[in-house]
């Protein structure tokens, strides 16, 4: 894969959204910006509408659990520009009990991915139109992709091989 010129995605973006960016990394040609939680909506809106970036396609929203660290979770956004053919990754850090602003007003396609993150990690997206579990049943307990959720699940009447729930 060709190494893309990352100056636009790194330097230009940094000077445009200075206050929102905490950290920037480039690994294997991929640009990652760690941004402030409250500015994610504005940054997405800027990236989508600015003609130089033109990030019109939301590829995915996902969560990651760094158990033992504070803040505990990361929410990762992958954006792509169909016209400019460039990708960018935004990240924000969030702790247990905190919520993240939903980007559904900017990208309507964030609806299901944000529900998936809520389902798997229990991260709440503020302003999401219909935040419910998407894969698991509505009465499911716990969030399976958290690192402290056992691989075998919790013991109940459907899962006799699961682990006992800690008190």
């Amino acid at each position: 894969m060709a190494q893309a010129d990352t100056s636009l995605l790194v330097d230009k973006f940094k000077s445009s959204c200075m206050h929102g960016i905490i950290e920037t990394r480039v690994f294997r040609g991929e640009v990652t910006h760690v941004v402030r939680r409250e500015s994610i909506g504005d940054i997405c809106n800027f990236l989508k509408t600015n003609p130089e970036f033109n990030m019109d396609y939301l590829v995915d929203v996902l969560g990651a659990d760094y158990y033992g660290e504070t803040p505990r979770f990361e929410v990762v956004y992958h954006l792509y520009s169909i016209r400019k053919k460039q990708r960018i990754r935004l990240k924000l850090r969030v702790d247990e009990g905190e919520s993240v602003p939903s980007i559904t007003p900017v990208y309507a396609g964030a609806d299901w991915p944000e529900r998936e993150v809520y389902d798997m990690f229990g991260i709440v997206f503020e302003g999401h139109p219909d935040l419910r579990r998407i894969y698991l049943a509505g009465d499911w307990e716990g969030h399976p992709l958290r690192k402290d959720y056992p691989l075998r699940g919790y013991r109940d009447k459907y899962n006799p091989y699961g682990e006992d729930k800690p008190e």
């Binding site: 991929e30 590829v59 995915d60 992958h78 990708r87």
Partner: peptide, 30 residues
């Protein structure tokens, strides 16, 4: 490190995002 790599699968963009902590198992795979 972390990478995202995608291909044009018959149904659309199929991407894999991996976070590695340097061990033999992926820390997070999406």
């Amino acid at each position: 490190g972390e990478v995202y790599s995608s291909i044009e699968a018959p149904k659309g963009e199929l991407g894999v995002y991996i976070v590695s902590d340097g061990s033999e198992k992926p820390y997070r795979l999406k």
